[in-house]
Amino acid sequence: MKHIKRLLVLIFLCIVCVAGYFTYRGYQRYEAAVDEISIEEKIGEIKSNPSYTTYDELPKTYLEAVVAVEDKRFYKHWGVDIISVGRAIKNNIQAGKLVEGGSTITQQLAKNLYFNQEQSIERKAAEAFMAFSLENKYSKKEILEFYVNTIYFGDGYYCVADASRGYFGKEPNQMSDYESTMLAGVPNAPSAYAPTVNPELAKERQEKVLRSMVKEKYLTQEQASQIVEGQ
């Protein structure tokens, strides 16, 4: 029994050491990124885009749809959602592979601003530090605004305005509830959910968005059904 306890303690210490190492490496990577170009400068670059769209120019339904399907606890966490991370770890272990990332909207923004798609613990740690920094500097409203102006929607559209114009021929503030909920689902997998690629898959993804909105009480089931029927 003593040997088992010692082994468990040793395993625990190893895990702590490994976690500490990658956290430190992640912090170094975060520092190197902001030393090269500050967060304020990065945000300035985004805002200089002629297609940049402000929070107030976006439909309420679209903003609620994004939060409901991408990061339901967005207004409750400080950049990293420990609950989502724990759930993702559990699901990945059960699946035996990476099936869920647990990234918040703020973490995704951090990745879009500074990091690539590399899947590593070090990069995730750097992303977390960047997310904390973003939350410290900007409001939730601003972070959501920056996010929808930096995500990829497929078909060469890298912000919400270009996607709205490209897919629906409309300015963002003119999108209907149907279009808003469809567009909110695209960034999860643009190569599959872009309306021009596979309309059926895009519709299925939209239905997931609507279910999430109902679950998070942004919509009633009746309102969600009316959105689908009133396309």
Rank of each mutant, 00 (worst) to 15 (best):
I83S: 06
V85S: 00
G86I: 06
A88N: 08
A88M: 11
I89C: 04
K90P: 00
N91M: 13
N91V: 09
N92T: 02
I93L: 15
K97D: 14
L98W: 07
L98P: 03
V99E: 10
E100M: 14
E100S: 12
G101M: 10
G101Y: 03
G101N: 12
G102R: 01
S103I: 01
S103F: 02
I105P: 03
Q107M: 15
Q108P: 10
Y114D: 09
N116M: 05
E118S: 12
Q119W: 02
Q119V: 11
S120F: 08
S120E: 09
I121N: 02
R123I: 02
K124T: 09
A125V: 06
A125F: 14
A128S: 15
F129W: 15
M130L: 15
A131M: 08
A131K: 00
F132A: 08
S133D: 15
L134H: 08
E135K: 13
N136S: 11
K137R: 15
K137V: 03
S139R: 04
K140S: 03
K141N: 11
I143H: 01
L144E: 10
E145W: 14
F146P: 07
F146Q: 05
Y147Q: 02
V148W: 06
V148A: 04
V148H: 07
T150M: 04
T150V: 06
I151G: 05
Y152W: 09
G154T: 03
G154W: 10
D155S: 13
Y158R: 10
V160C: 03
A163T: 11
S164P: 11
S164H: 04
R165N: 03
R165F: 01
G166E: 05
Y167I: 09
Y167Q: 13
F168M: 00
G169V: 00
G169I: 00
P172Y: 08
N173P: 00
Q174G: 10
M175I: 14
M175L: 15
Y178D: 03
E179T: 02
S180F: 14
M182R: 05
L183I: 08
A184K: 02
V186D: 08
N188P: 00
N188Q: 14
A189Q: 02
A192N: 11
A192S: 14
Y193V: 06
A194L: 11
P195V: 04
P195N: 05
T196V: 07
T196W: 06
T196N: 15
P199Q: 12
E200V: 15
L201Q: 15
E204M: 08
K208L: 15
K208S: 07
K208N: 07
V209Y: 01
L210S: 00
R211F: 01
